[in-house]
Design a protein around this nucleic acid. Structure first.
Lengths: 146, 146
DNA sequence: TATTGTTATACTCTATAACTATA
DNA sequence: TATAGTTATAGAGTATAACAATA
C-alpha cells in the first residue's frame, strides 16, 4: 500500500466527508436536545465561552468561537433578547461592550449543557467509553494544532 | 465525574465544535491542494462517487453524497463544463441521465485524490499512523450508524 | 490613526416548490 | 400518478466594506 493509498478511493472514507457528516449528525441531535431551552447549538457555544471568560468583550467572544465580530453582533442580539446575557460599556475602554451572563443565562447554560452532553453520548453510543475519550482527544489535538 | 460531566464546560471540547473546526481545517488544506486541478473538495467527492458506482444516475450520485438532487445539477454542470464527466440519457429509462467520467475526469480524479491524500496526511501530522487509522475508523463507525 | 461595535450588503451552500418529459 | 432532471426562489450562515464612537 503506497503512502498516498491509505484511504482508498471511497468517498465515505475521506476525512472531509467524515468530519462533515459527523458534524451534521451531531447538529441534528444537539438541535433536538436544545429545543426545550429555546437556543441552538451555536448559541450554547456562545454561552459557554462567555461563562468561561467573562467579563469579555464581544470581539474576544467572537475570536474564541472563531467567527467574525460582525457575525457575533446578531448572535448576541438574540441571546440578549432572550434575557440570557447583558451588554454594558467597558468603563476602562468605552469602545468595548462587556458581555456577561444573566442569572437566567447561567441557569439555561447549566441545563442546556447537560442536555447537549447527553446528545453527545448518544452519538458516541457505537463507541466504547475508552474509544469515545480517544476520539475527543485525537480531534482536540488536530484542532489545537490547526 | 458525573455522567454529564465528561466534557467539562469548555467550548473547545464540545464535539460539535471539534467536528466543525476539524472540518474547516481539512477544507482549507483540501482547497489549497486541489487548486492545481481546477476543482474543489466537493467536486472531488462527486468524481470519486461516480468512479465508484458508474454508470449511475444523477439522483444516485446525489444520494451517495448526501445532497438533494436539485443541488447535484449545478455540481454536474460545472464538472461537465470542465470536460470531466459526460451525461447521456439512460437507454432503458429515458428520464434518467447516465453520468460517467471522461478520460480527463479519470486523469484528474487520480491526481487530485493523491493530492488530497497528502492534505489529509498533513492534517493528521500531530497523530501517529496508528492514531490516524483509529480516528478514521471511529469516525466511520459514527457516520455509518447515523 | 487604529480599534470596537454596528449596519448594509453580498456571497456560498443548500433546500423547497413547481415545471417538463418520461414512465 | 409517479419519478428524474431542471429551474426559480428562498433561507441559513457567513464575511467584507463602510460608518460612528472612542482610544
Amino acid at each position: 500500500m503506497s503512502i498516498t493509498d491509505n484511504t482508498g478511493s471511497r468517498a465515505g472514507r475521506r476525512l472531509g466527508y467524515l468530519f462533515k457528516h459527523a458534524g451534521m449528525l451531531m447538529s441534528e441531535r444537539n438541535d433536538a436536545a436544545l429545543v426545550p431551552f429555546g437556543i441552538d447549538p451555536r448559541e450554547l457555544g456562545v454561552l459557554i465561552v462567555i461563562d468561561s471568560y467573562e467579563p469579555a468583550s464581544q470581539q474576544q467572544v467572537a475570536e474564541r468561537i472563531g467567527v467574525d465580530r460582525t457575525t457575533m453582533v446578531a448572535m448576541l442580539d438574540a441571546l440578549q433578547a432572550k434575557g440570557l446575557l447583558s451588554r454594558r460599556p467597558d468603563a476602562e475602554d468605552r469602545r468595548r461592550n462587556v458581555v456577561e451572563l444573566t442569572p437566567a443565562g447561567h441557569d439555561i447554560l447549566g441545563r442546556a449543557t447537560a442536555a447537549s452532553d447527553t446528545a453527545e453520548e448518544e452519538l458516541l453510543a457505537p463507541l466504547s467509553p475508552e474509544e469515545a475519550g480517544q476520539l475527543r482527544e485525537l480531534l482536540g489535538r488536530i484542532v489545537a494544532r490547526g
